[in-house]
Design a protein around this nucleic acid. Sequence first.
DNA 1: TCTTGACCTTGAGTTAACTCCAAGTAGTAC
DNA 2: GTACTACTTGGAGTTAACTCAAGGTCAAGA
Lengths: 135, 135
Amino acid sequence: MADLTITEVSKKYDIKPDTLRYYERIGLIPKVPRQSNGNRYYNEGLQGWIEMIVCLRHSDVPVEKLVDYAEMLRQGDSTLDAREELLKEQLAELEQRKSNLNRSIKRLKHKISLYDSGEIKKGKSYFEEYKIMDD
Amino acid sequence: MADLTITEVSKKYDIKPDTLRYYERIGLIPKVPRQSNGNRYYNEGLQGWIEMIVCLRHSDVPVEKLVDYAEMLRQGDSTLDAREELLKEQLAELEQRKSNLNRSIKRLKHKISLYDSGEIKKGKSYFEEYKIMDD
DNA sequence: TCTTGACCTTGAGTTAACTCCAAGTAGTAC
DNA sequence: GTACTACTTGGAGTTAACTCAAGGTCAAGA
């Protein structure tokens, strides 16, 4: 895999150059190597790291947690346990999120079915339709 | 179901009184009826509506979208189609979110398994471990 | 040589969604 | 009557995560 400029990485992962620089500033991405003119180039390892970050950010894993993880990586083997712990916490968080999501999806689908069946039309008062669903 | 005070609703749905007042201010909750002393009381219909909002907010459906929906509800039958449309859009959004989430969960699990198997320990350089996963 | 375009830096501005604060009132407990 | 508690209001402050603006450098092409 070839080195890429900031705009190329930006396009590859659909993330703004400003965001990439911001991530570097706060320590989420390590010091990116530069060309002689000062421009950044992203090698294979960096691209993999960025891919990971972008993936987790799409699921709203907090930037702060990712920074903590990156910081621990930098510190080396002494942080192995803490790193694993952090990953497990975030996993638990996402599983929770997934269950919330399923609940919301179920609710929306139910409500849409009421619209589709015409049940919502029947002259209900504006908020009456919001009886608690039995779930 | 009985009427509840703001603190009671707050406890029931685990949401701060300030947030409930804020939701009312921005039109996400309709004008809440008051007791003679000016205090709010939430009747059954309102509680159902709040339950719905809280559920969808747990999945990060934007407050703005919910306000739009509430506004359309207030406008009555002429907005039926637009309301259904909005619900369908949000549903699509949540399905997308769910697929992101599954991807992230898979990734975290994989990474945790590397820690558990001891593979991460083997003197890898700090970011080398972030090769792109084949998913 | 001049201009264009892609990059750079620092620092400020924006957005969403709360969250808090100060000051005031109503109702009850002693 | 006074303290205490639970509410009220309007408005200001906070947080996370970008996002943008202003001004500067540098290499390539007309």
